[in-house]
């Protein structure tokens, strides 16, 4: 094990923990709104659940980048031996999805909660609520793309 490995693992950890925290908060916010709607009308639980699941993707993206870094540096199934420079590169590669995932998941959670407000009054407009929340996710997807390209690019 080298210091490079440590720093690369820090990158993986940041990707997973920041994006995961964001998703947890976002899903929590949407869940509170969903519970409120379901107390009034239990038949809307499936629709509310779809909206609640939306801010959860950032956590998955974070885990994805984290796992990619771990498998590339050989923590999962291999012998880790990473130079200091490579370690720093992995740390940087983990940052986009970590930071953008954190904030976009929280704000997507708020948008999803408002979308759940839509289905409380007009359940037929579910797709519009989903679209509003999915607009926020665009930036998480772009950050995921940046992180992916960075990780793939490190030789």
């Amino acid at each position: 094990m080298t210091y490079g490995t440590l720093i690369a693992m820090l990158g993986a950890a940041l990707a997973v923990l920041l994006a995961g925290t964001g998703s947890a908060i976002g899903v929590g916010i949407a869940g509170q709104a969903a519970a409120g709607v379901v107390t009034e009308d239990p038949t809307k639980s499936t629709k509310a659940l779809i909206l609640q699941a939306l801010p959860g993707t950032q956590g998955i993206y974070g885990l994805l980048i984290g796992f990619l870094i771990l498998s590339k540096i050989g923590i999962v199934g291999g012998n880790p031996n990473v130079s200091l420079l490579a370690g720093l590169l992995y740390l940087v590669a983990g940052l986009p999805i970590g930071v953008v995932g954190l904030f976009s998941a929280i704000y997507q959670g708020k948008a999803a909660a408002a979308g759940i407000g839509i289905i409380a009054k007009r359940p037929e407009e579910l797709i519009k609520g989903i679209t509003f929340a999915a607009m926020v996710e665009t930036y998480a997807v772009l950050a995921l793309l940046a992180s992916l390209l960075m990780v793939f690019g490190i030789k």
Partner: peptide, 21 residues
Amino acid sequence: SYSRILALGLATGIIATVINT
């Protein structure tokens, strides 16, 4: 904006690989 196709496509396959591992 269409780059999301690449990101989502890669994500599915890699998460499947993670599950297999």
